[in-house]
Computed example of a mutant assay.
Amino acid sequence: MTEEQKQPEIIDQNPEINTSDGPVDINDSGAESTEATEESTVDESQSTEANLEIEDDGTNSPENEEIFAAFQQENANLKKLLDEKSEQAELTKAQYTRLAADFENFRRRTTKEKENLEVQAKKNVITDLLPVVDNFERARTQLKPETEGEKAIHGSYQGVYKTLVDCLKKMGVSAMRPEGEEFDPNFHEAMLREQTDEYPEGTVIEQLMRGYVLGDTILRHAMVKVAVPKEPVITSEEKKTEQDQQENENTES
């Protein structure tokens, strides 16, 4: 028998799906399909729940708890390290501020000491030169040149004197001019006192030796003569009367 002869027999054995005999009833097949779909959905939801249970079980596992605890410990260690570094930074900042203040004070103190040292060095040198200036001034007032040779010599050493005075002025040295001023013990030294009514008491009459200052520093006090009031003159009669009064007082006592 050939294959073409066998085919109708197969169709006849399944009349429900044979399209040649009439309409086919598909209600049964659709119901079966819906039931299959519902079953597959239930299976998928069950599998999803199972997966969630597996994931939950994995999250709460001891290994994950150990990892989480390790992270927490590491976080605490890092926080502690950060606090230590912050404290160290604040301490370093405070030390830097203190060192900067100390350095500024040191710089100011060094500058002040340097200035004082320069002034003291100038003072020492100029003080040693002041007697030379005094000698030139005495020579100018005491010597009276008469001949041409004497005048030439006088002009020569006066030129040296002028050069020396100019150098001292450039260094900041100035001479005192106390005549007619009130006596000041900070600048003057009283060598003589003269009784006079021409000047008020305590007035500088004459400068015996010139005083010098270097800025605000006194190089040498000016030696001066100071005016004092005259004492009252007692005549012989007033003196005799005073003696008689003293004798009477002694007799009564």
Rank of each mutant, 00 (worst) to 15 (best):
E104H: 07
M209C: 08
G211I: 00
E194A: 13
I153P: 04
D102E: 15
K230Y: 03
M176R: 07
I205E: 13
M191F: 02
E118G: 15
R108I: 06
H188N: 08
D128M: 07
A152G: 07
E148M: 13
D128T: 09
T196I: 10
P185H: 14
A152R: 13
K114H: 13
Y157A: 05
F136P: 00
N186L: 11
G202N: 05
E87Y: 03
M191Y: 04
D216V: 04
N116Q: 13
P200Y: 10
P178T: 08
D128L: 03
I205W: 02
A139W: 01
A222M: 03
V228N: 05
A89Y: 12
H188D: 01
H154F: 15
Q95I: 05
L117W: 10
T163Y: 08
E137G: 00
V165R: 01
K122S: 08
V160C: 09
L208Y: 05
G159N: 10
V226W: 06
K122D: 07
A121V: 09
V133L: 09
L143N: 11
V213R: 08
L192T: 15
E87K: 14
P232H: 01
G211D: 05
V173M: 04
K85I: 09
K151I: 01
A175I: 02
K230S: 09
S174L: 07
V204Q: 00
Q195Y: 09
T217V: 01
P185K: 14
A152P: 02
R177D: 06
D216P: 04
E189K: 13
K162T: 07
G172E: 09
L130N: 00
K93R: 12
P178N: 01
A152W: 11
R193Q: 13
R138W: 05
